[in-house]
Write a protein that binds this DNA or RNA. Sequence first.
DNA 1: GCCAACGTTGGC
DNA 2: GCCAACGTTGGC
Length: 154
Amino acid sequence: MNYWLMKSEEHEYSIDQLKEDGHTHWDGVRNYQARNFMRDDMKIGDRVLYYHSNSKPTGVVGLATVCREGYPDFTAWDPKDKHFDPKTQKDAPTWIMVDIAFDQKFDACVELAALKANAKLEEMKVVQRGQRLSVQPVEKKHFNEVCRMAGAKP
DNA sequence: GCCAACGTTGGC
DNA sequence: GCCAACGTTGGC
């Protein structure tokens, strides 16, 4: 099983929205590295740290689980969609998404500042400068540590 | 709003 | 293939 961190802007799609919907398709990723993770490495049952970026506060707000493996991101073909990609061929999808299901919302956000202050997490990608990937792999020990900080069961 | 970091584009 | 220009991300 693999562990991941996925970023969403709170006002775009929040953990509360995911809780209400139960599950969602993770559309709109237009970065090849992130695409490759979703296409090649994400498997059903993988665990996800749900991260709010550009929010107050920013940090990990809960957990989700991968419930459908990589398939074409159909929003790339929709001219009305914010993430429309005119270069994507209809029969050869460039962009891939997965579905994730709500697992739990933390009682309190584990803030980025707290992640940075925890020496056990210094090798975690999200705390490193310039790390902008919206889908990134996480080590099991880091995943467990974030859960511990949240007072949540992994 | 600012700006550093990084990815992508396109001229050559 | 190089690299400057530009666009985006995302913390602060």
